[in-house]
Simulated assay, not measured.
Amino acid sequence: MSALPSAWAWLTSAAHWSGSDGIWHRLGEHLFLTAVCLSLSCAIALPVALGLGHLGKGGALAVNISNAGRAVPTFAVLVLLLLTPVGGYGQWPTIIALVLFAIPPLLTNAYIGMRGVDPDVVRAARGMGMTGGQLLRRVEAPLALPMILTGVRIAAVQLVATATLAALAGGGGLGRIITAGFNLASTPQVLAGALLVAVFALLVEGVFELVRRLSPSYGRDGSG
């Protein structure tokens, strides 16, 4: 039996969907890990990007520094964290590594979106007496929303794919299906795990693209 039919047979087996090692459980772990890392990354990157974009100062340096960090492989960061006193097997080393991995696209796209707001609109809002905070909340951030959501979508999809590394640190997620397949020398299981990750990533991208298209600011800057 060739690889794809064997992987399909593995996926369609009811026994592989239930239990603590089943697909549903591993998918839930993967979704939780992705959501936690994405939330933490947004909480760190977006306020910085919005603030710097509003001020128009220091943003280029912050973006360049964050993008330079992307040159360091996430796996290398994970290994280094495992060797530190705060490391050890479990979720936290993976969460830290994935958060660092997700910050650059969030920071870059949000900052570009803020700086791409029409200066005439900003001047008009200031002429109406808006304060800096009001300008940021009511004008700049809504107009930058398509680019912000693009960054969130990119980060989310990358996190779904990269969260498989959690299995190497003793964490959960779909990566455990792949690593278990390697341990068992089961090519169908390895391929099935990879297909699950790929489909999950495509679904996440589709959801975020739908949200972006339904956002009130979609198309105001000519995107889409």
Rank of each mutant, 00 (worst) to 15 (best):
N67P: 12
N67E: 15
N67V: 10
A68K: 05
A68Y: 13
G69Y: 12
R70K: 03
A71Q: 11
V72N: 15
P73E: 09
P73A: 08
F75A: 09
F75V: 04
F75S: 03
V77D: 09
V79H: 00
L80N: 07
L81R: 02
P85L: 03
P85W: 08
V86Q: 15
G87F: 01
G87Y: 00
T94S: 15
I95D: 05
I96A: 09
L98V: 00
L98W: 01
V99A: 07
A102K: 02
I103N: 07
P105D: 12
T108N: 13
T108W: 02
T108M: 12
I112H: 08
G113K: 00
M114Q: 07
R115S: 10
G116R: 03
V117T: 04
D118M: 12
D118G: 04
V121G: 10
V121Q: 12
R123H: 13
R126L: 15
G129S: 11
M130C: 03
G133Q: 14
G133E: 15
Q134V: 07
Q134M: 06
L135Y: 08
L135T: 04
R137I: 15
E140H: 09
A141C: 15
P142Q: 09
L143E: 14
A144F: 02
I148W: 01
I148G: 04
R153Q: 07
I154N: 04
A155F: 10
A155T: 06
Q158H: 05
V160N: 01
V160M: 07
A161M: 13
A161Y: 05
T162C: 08
T164L: 01
L165G: 07
A167C: 08
L168P: 02
G170D: 15
G172Y: 01
G175S: 12
R176S: 14
R176Q: 13
I177D: 02
F182K: 04
N183W: 12
N183P: 11
T187S: 06
P188H: 05
Q189M: 12
L191G: 05
A192E: 03
A192P: 05
G193F: 03
L196N: 03
L196T: 05
F200E: 03
F200I: 02
A201N: 14
A201W: 09
L202E: 14
L203W: 11
L203Q: 07
V204I: 14
V204Q: 07
E205W: 07
G206N: 01
R212K: 11
R213N: 05
